[in-house]
């Protein structure tokens, strides 16, 4: 069961991060902790997935820049900062971002009205400089890599 809240007036505590040059917001409520692992804590699994060791646990890494197609899969995972998020099913993920800018409250602005739903993105907000930043839906963003397949672009199929 789920309850949908009106998006237009909601305020959210967010962590403002840099993902491959794009400023994005991750809801604080979903973040368990942030880590900056040593290169030795990062391990590759055979299928191209990377995991990070945190206090003896291995947590799968999801590069947000790759999920959103801002860049190819990065090879320098140790330069990134990791946000540990926990999904509804107690599954932990480490979201890789380039930098953490700061933490602030943001007003949620819907994308649905004028554009539609963007996979992995919950909504948007407007930052102090007037620019638009997208608010990430971590749960959905990690599902994109779960499948780990090129995303079929539905809107492009309709277009000719």
């Amino acid at each position: 069961m789920s309850i949908s809240l009106p998006l237009t007036l909601a305020v959210l505590d967010g962590m403002v991060v840099d993902v491959a040059g794009q400023t994005m917001v991750v809801p604080i409520a979903t973040i368990v902790e942030t880590i900056r692992p040593e290169a030795g804590d990062l391990h590759r699994l055979a299928d191209g997935m990377t995991v990070v060791a945190v206090r003896g646990r291995f947590i799968p890494v999801v590069d947000l820049g790759h999920v959103f197609k801002f860049r190819e899969a990065t090879k320098t995972y140790s330069d990134l900062v990791y946000l540990l998020v926990e999904s509804d099913h107690q599954q932990m993920w480490a979201l890789a971002v380039d930098r953490i800018h700061d933490q602030r409250q943001v007003v949620i602005k819907g994308l649905e009205g004028n554009y539609g739903h963007v996979p992995g993105v919950a909504a948007a907000t407007i930052l102090g400089d007037g620019k638009v930043a997208l608010i990430i839906d971590p749960e959905e963003a990690v599902q994109r890599t779960d499948a780990d397949q090129p995303v079929p672009d539905h809107s492009q199929l309709k277009d000719c």
Binding site: Y115, V121, V132, L134, Q156
Partner: peptide, 25 residues
């Protein structure tokens, strides 16, 4: 004004801008 890139968007969508508080593609 430069737009914020939208992931997974068709190539003709440049992104979204802030139009007096509204998000406009």
């Amino acid at each position: 004004t430069p737009a914020t890139v939208l992931p997974h968007a068709p190539d003709y969508v440049l992104g979204v801008i802030n139009l007096r508080g509204a998000i406009v593609p």
